[in-house]
C-alpha cells in the first residue's frame, strides 16, 4: 500500500469515528500550523503568531467539513496544504481590503507603490480554476505540476494508461485557458 492509499484508509477510519485513527490524524495535522508559519515567513510575516493560530483554527474547521471528499490522490499533507494556502490567501486579501477601506475612509490616496494583492489573487484563482475541472483532469494536472510526476508515473498512480493521462492533461489545460483569461481581466 503506498502513502496515498494508507492516508485514504486513515481518513476512512477517522470518518468511521475510530478513536486511534482520530489520534493519529490529529498528530498528522500538526503540519497545519507549520505550513501556515512557513507561508507567513515567505510572505514577509504579514501575520502575527496569534493571527496564524486563528487561521489554523479556520483550516481545521474547513478540513473536518471536507474530510469526506479526500480521495487519496495525494498525501494528506499535500491535500492539507491546499486548504492552508487557500485560507492564508483569503486572510491576506481580507487584511488588504480592510487596509484599503481604512485608507479610503481616512482620506489617504491610493498610490502606485501600495501593495496590490495580484499574486495572492492569482494563486487563489489558480486553485479555484483547478476545482472547476473534472476530478480526473485536476488530479492529472496536480500530479504533474505539484507532485512533479511523469505521465508514466501519473498513469500508474491513477490506474490509467500514460497516453490517457496525457489526454486528460491537455484537455484540462485547454479548459483552464478561458478561465485564466477571465482571471487576467479581473486582475487588470
Amino acid at each position: 500500500m503506498n502513502a496515498w492509499e494508507s492516508d485514504l484508509e486513515l481518513v476512512k477510519r477517522v470518518l468511521a469515528g475510530e478513536r486511534a485513527a482520530i489520534d493519529e490524524f490529529s498528530l498528522r495535522m500538526q503540519c497545519v500550523p507549520l505550513i501556515l508559519a512557513s507561508l507567513n515567513a515567505r510572505r514577509g510575516r504579514p501575520f502575527s503568531a496569534a493571527d496564524t493560530t486563528d487561521i489554523a483554527q479556520d483550516v481545521f474547521v474547513l478540513l473536518w467539513r471536507k474530510l469526506d471528499v479526500y480521495e487519496g490522490m495525494s498525501t494528506l499533507e499535500s491535500w492539507v496544504f491546499r486548504f492552508c494556502h487557500y485560507e492564508f490567501l483569503n486572510a491576506l486579501r481580507r487584511r488588504q481590503r480592510a487596509r484599503q477601506s481604512e485608507s479610503i475612509e481616512s482620506g489617504a490616496e491610493w498610490t502606485a507603490n501600495a501593495p496590490r494583492p495580484t499574486g495572492a489573487v492569482a494563486y487563489a484563482r489558480l486553485h479555484e480554476i483547478l476545482e472547476r475541472l473534472s476530478p480526473r483532469e485536476a488530479s492529472v494536472i496536480r500530479a504533474k505540476h505539484f507532485d512533479g510526476l511523469t505521465f508514466d508515473e501519473i498513469g500508474a498512480r491513477l490506474g490509467i494508461p500514460p497516453n490517457t493521462a496525457k489526454t486528460h492533461y491537455y484537455r484540462g489545460i485547454e479548459r483552464m485557458r478561458p478561465l485564466l483569461l477571465s482571471m487576467r481581466e479581473e486582475i487588470e
Binding site: 482520530i22 490524524f25 490529529s26 498528530l27 495535522m29 500538526q30 503540519c31 497545519v32 500550523p33 507549520l34 505550513i35 508559519a37 512557513s38 507561508l39 515567505r42 493560530t53 489554523a56 483554527q57 481545521f60 474547521v61 473536518w64 499533507e77 499535500s78 496544504f81 491546499r82 494556502h85 505539484f146 507532485d147 512533479g148
Partner: peptide, 29 residues
C-alpha cells in the same frame, strides 16, 4: 511552493513549533 513548504515542514517535525502545532491540532480535532 507546495513541495518546498512541505519539505520544510517535514524537517521541522521535532521542533518546539511542531509540538505547539500538535497540541493545537489535537485540541481542535
Amino acid at each position: 511552493l507546495e513541495r518546498d513548504v512541505l519539505a520544510e515542514v517535514s524537517g521541522a517535525r521535532e521542533s518546539d513549533a511542531a509540538r505547539r502545532g500538535a497540541a493545537q491540532a489535537r485540541a481542535a480535532i
